[in-house]
């Protein structure tokens, strides 16, 4: 075989490998294009159009949707003024999502630690219990929570029957109720990545910490937490992002008096008849999520470098 033949065979093999890669990637790429990029493109286009009279859009370019997010023609005198209404809705959603993230971390860390320190053969059972709620639809789980915390629900009836309280605690239809609902819904998303990190933790390092006279708190903050950091970050991202766009939980448990991002976007396509603004708000929400992910990627990158 001459050198030329050899390189031709090489080129042929390379082409085949490339074709194989393309063929294997094809379906996934096609699906991403069709159900992710294409709708996103439509959203971007719509956000720069003018709202149609009864919903829908008319094909006239406009940046009004983005201007509307921060400013409005004064509701009564027509001048352009800063309008914090939508910003406030975003901030409330961010606050609740952040609260849910902290809440699930506080509840999830001990849970994950508990499971990770069980004998190996028992862990599967505990993990099974964590994933059990996924067997039920989120709507039904949220509704179950509503039945538990309502005025004549399980908690209030029990407390009243035990004569601990005389009047039902008004938990339902408050921010507290949304908070409880979010924590309940997203707890598994925190526990699972934390468990994955803690499971790999070398407990000899914990023992070493104690040997060096570290207090329990010192061991937790200087040994366990840094080693579990990838899990903590992953869990926080997994809770914060869906929490930000949560729709069902605030809708059912919040009582509908205050808007959250998800609900605010939804009404733009309904009674507000303003699809461009709904699209713009959805994109702004997405930009927020991307920022969170970038922060995560940078943190993870530093982590990899530190251990690499």
């Amino acid at each position: 075989m001459s050198g030329a033949q050899l390189s031709a065979a090489h080129a042929e093999a390379g082409r085949r490998a490339r074709n194989a890669r393309l063929g294997l990637l094809g379906p996934a790429v096609l699906i991403i294009l069709l159900i992710s990029i294409l709708p996103l493109g439509i959203t971007v286009v719509y956000s720069f159009l003018t709202p149609g009279t009864y919903g829908g859009v008319t094909w006239e370019f406009s940046t009004a949707a983005y201007v509307q997010f921060l400013f409005e023609e004064d509701i009564f005198d027509g001048t352009l003024a800063f309008n914090p209404a939508y910003l406030q809705i975003f901030l409330r959603s961010i606050g609740l999502a952040f609260g849910a993230m902290i809440g699930t971390l506080i509840l999830g860390f001990p849970t994950a630690y508990f499971i990770a320190t069980k004998p190996r053969q028992q862990r599967t059972f505990w993990l099974f219990l964590i994933t059990l709620p996924f067997w039920t639809n989120i709507l039904i789980r949220t509704y179950a929570m509503l039945l538990i915390i309502r005025d004549e629900g399980f908690i209030n009836l029990t407390l009243m029957n035990l004569r601990i309280i005389n009047h039902p605690l008004s938990i339902l239809y408050t921010d507290t109720a949304v908070f409880i609902g979010l924590i309940y819904t997203y707890l598994p998303f925190m526990v699972l990545p934390l468990y994955a990190s803690l499971e790999k933790l070398d407990f000899r390092l914990v023992e070493a910490g104690y040997d060096l006279y570290a207090s329990r708190w010192k061991v937790l903050s200087h040994v366990i937490a840094p080693l579990a950091k990838p899990g903590i970050i992953a869990g926080c991202v997994l809770v914060f992002i869906p929490g930000l766009g949560a729709y069902i939980t605030p809708e059912l448990l919040g009582g509908g008096k205050k808007l959250m991002i998800g609900n605010m976007i939804a009404i733009q396509f309904g009674s507000s008849r303003n699809w461009p603004f709904g699209s713009a708000a959805a994109l702004i929400l997405m930009a927020l999520v991307v920022i969170v992910l970038l922060v995560y990627a940078r943190a993870a990158g530093r982590e990899a470098k530190a251990h690499g």
Binding site: I75, A85, Y86, Q88, K257, K258, L259, S271, S272
Partner: peptide, 14 residues
């Protein structure tokens, strides 16, 4: 009018 109502409604629920 719908636009005006919308703004009143958003203010109400902000």
């Amino acid at each position: 009018v719908v636009d005006l109502y919308n703004r009143v409604w958003t203010r109400l629920k902000q």
